[in-house]
């Protein structure tokens, strides 16, 4: 399989299961890479897993070998290096997409893949699925089984209602007791001042914040033509526009919004990434891993 296909939204869209999607993406990302994990030593045994080449021989559980006649490696609940919170926007605006993946599907797949990676590195991963008024929260854990919980949470969520991403970030900031990583996956179609305020608070709490700003190619390019009636996806309102007439000013306003967001993030030291749903998923993940490796250093 061509490695590009691991990240192609079209290919991913054919995988219905979020777990499969996450694994698919991560496997694609790791294929060809040395698979030795940078897992730390642990004192609390958690589980066995099959030996794979690259594992240190000293970690082989010889007793288990004697018992099961196959190489098993002991895994321990490692000390967590990092407390990561994934805040995924599940507003109605995320339930939009012109391509194979909607913004929500893209965000969920990206979050799943990141969870996979983080958990694979024994980081604790928590999840906040942001709705307009209240969030679905999954507390951070570092055990691998936690991935299933996270994925189940994502899979169970249905995007809808208004945007509450700023509020969710504020709530999270208030709850954070340790420094860690906060990954925001949202279209950020909320009050920019409130979003800035929430990001600022997260930063003040000492967290590293990564923002994956998910937008659909339709939103970014406005490819409509002729006379069109535009419906708001969150509120029941619409306008009729001459697409050729409004295209340029619309894109101007959008660019202005993106630039402001980018600048605010830069000012706060927030790692900002604008991601189009038409882009392959690995780009977002590579950015994330790049950040992760920087943070290790």
């Amino acid at each position: 399989m061509n490695t590009d296909q691991y990240f192609d939204p079209l290919v991913i869209s054919r995988l219905s299961n979020l777990q499969l999607r996450a694994r698919h993406v991560v496997e694609g990302l790791m294929s060809g890479v040395h698979r030795s994990r940078s897992r730390g030593f642990s004192v609390d045994f958690e589980e066995h897993r099959a030996y794979s080449p690259g594992d240190e021989l000293r970690h082989i559980d010889w007793k288990a070998y004697g018992k099961f006649d196959r190489y098993l490696v002991k895994q321990y609940e490692d000390e967590t290096n990092l407390y990561a919170h994934l805040v995924v926007d599940a507003s109605a605006s995320m339930d939009f997409g012109d391509g194979p993946l909607s913004k929500w599907a893209y965000a969920a797949t990206l979050s799943s893949a990141m969870s996979h990676l983080l958990l694979g590195q024994s980081d604790s991963v928590g999840l906040v699925i942001s709705h307009e008024t209240e969030d679905v929260q999954v507390p951070p854990k570092s055990i691998r089984k936690h991935l299933l919980t996270l994925l189940a949470g994502l899979q169970a969520a249905t995007p809808g209602g208004g945007t509450g991403i700023a509020r969710s970030m504020l709530d999270l900031a208030e709850r954070l007791k340790r420094r860690g990583l906060v990954v925001i996956v949202s279209d950020l179609l909320d009050d920019p001042e409130a979003v800035e305020k929430a990001l600022k608070l997260l930063c003040l709490k000492g967290s590293d914040v990564i923002v994956f700003h998910i937008l659909d190619s339709v939103e970014l390019e406005f490819p409509f033509e002729g006379l069109a009636r535009m419906d708001d996806v969150e509120i029941d309102r619409n306008i009729t526009v001459e697409c050729e007439v409004v295209k340029r000013p619309y894109l101007g306003l959008l660019e202005e919004f993106l630039e402001q967001t980018r600048e605010r993030c830069a000012d706060l030291g927030v790692d900002y990434h604008l991601v189009s749903t038409a882009e392959p998923l690995d780009r977002g993940l590579i950015r994330f891993l790049a950040w992760r490796s920087r943070s290790r250093v």
Partner: peptide, 12 residues
């Protein structure tokens, strides 16, 4: 006239 949904309606 054709109908479209647009999340970035506010900008429009």
């Amino acid at each position: 006239v054709r109908r479209y949904r647009l999340p970035t309606f506010e900008f429009l």
